[in-house]
Nucleic acid binder design. Structure first.
Lengths: 204, 204
DNA sequence: GTACAAAATGATACAGAGTATCAACTTCTG
DNA sequence: CAGAAGTTGATACTCTGTATCATTTTGTAC
């Protein structure tokens, strides 16, 4: 999972990251072209230039590779933007601002987001593994917002809760957007969802 | 998924519900006895007294049947208790009270809950499908809390957000509990998680 | 640059999951 | 009771995911 790690050490790590990204990209592209049912692990492996055994060294399932290819980019960018929000901004406000920043470029990529969202929920197995991937993103968001709490204690549930709330708000906003066939304003929907929740930055 | 539906109409519906429950129960029992890797769809079908094709008419995957058998009971009871909380209690408070009520009997079944929780996260595929099942439960909780908002409007995201928050709080509390090998106080952990979040019953 | 250890790869075989088809059986309706 | 509708179980098949092993690539020490 892509966190703000130090520069990778050697060629092995570089290759590992590059291969994983190549697999995810190939998976998303082939599923976009043919649909999930007509896309096999062998197809994805061939398109990524690897063997099938290597595929399974990078991803636990075909659907996880597809989910990483479809959903990974937007969330990766969100976490990156989160890191840039000034430290004095509270945890949920930081998430709101980062989501708003991501939304600024939304119109330029609306069709792509819509297609990716449709594909993500287009099979029960892919939905299940997309949710699995979202848990990884929750952890990344939690790591990013933890320092924004004034009174964090060891074992404090709030960073993980903020991560979970963020992914839930996004997921439900995308659901509503798809229900409306993408006619709605997704950035607005995300902000509405995030506005409805509060996680105080300081316990009472 | 079990919602407070009217009495089933005919023998077909009764059989469908009964068969589905038999499959889920057999799946959980066999996985408890042998582990996931040693439990096949044919094993579960045989234990439930059905054919393998019938198995796949009730569940989209082996792991979904297992998840339904392991996790379904506790959440079914939670939704039932939610229905009994007085209408004037706000949405999240109702969830807190229902969770507290469920926790009253916790000690009597602590070993069973611990084993079920461990099994639920014991394979990536089962984790993914358990999360998939949780989305069904979010919908059920949303249906139950919707009337507790003073100013609900069509398309209002808050009931679904309460559902998502409830399942996230439970999931993260169980995670923390497992990290501590079940030594912690799960009902207390759930209350702590639920206490950290607010969804105002009325928009400002 | 070389030798060796460690890690990664790809080919392959296999068990089992998940899908599709069809004949037979069960349930429902009039 | 007859006929329609729905459900079932057996079976064949494709593909996923796992395991094994020989080969290749990368990293380290000298």
């Amino acid at each position: 999972m892509t966190e703000a790690a130090p520069e990778p050490r050697g060629r092995r790590e570089l290759n590992r990251i590059r291969t994983r990204q190549a697999i995810a990209d190939a998976a998303a592209r082939l599923v976009g072209e043919r649909g999930i049912e007509r896309t096999t692990v062998d197809d994805i492996a061939a398109a990524a230039g690897i063997g099938r055994a290597t595929f399974f060294r990078h991803f636990e399932s075909k659907e996880l590779a597809i989910a990483a290819g479809l959903s990974g980019a937007a969330i990766f960018v969100l976490v990156g933007i989160l890191e840039e929000i000034p430290d004095e901004v509270g945890p949920l406000d930081a998430v709101r601002r980062a989501s708003a920043r991501l939304g600024e470029d939304f119109e330029a990529q609306r069709a792509m987001f819509l297609e990716q969202a449709r594909l993500s929920w287009s099979s029960p197995a892919l939905m299940a593994w997309t949710l699995h991937l979202y848990v990884d993103w929750e952890v990344a968001i939690a790591a990013s917002v933890a320092r924004r709490f004034d009174d964090l204690v060891p074992g404090d549930p709030r960073p993980r809760l903020v991560g979970a709330i963020t992914m839930a708000a996004w997921r439900l906003a995308v659901d509503a957007w798809l229900t409306d066939d993408g006619a709605g304003d997704l950035p607005r929907l995300i902000q509405d969802h995030l506005a409805a929740i509060d996680v105080p930055r300081r316990n009472p």
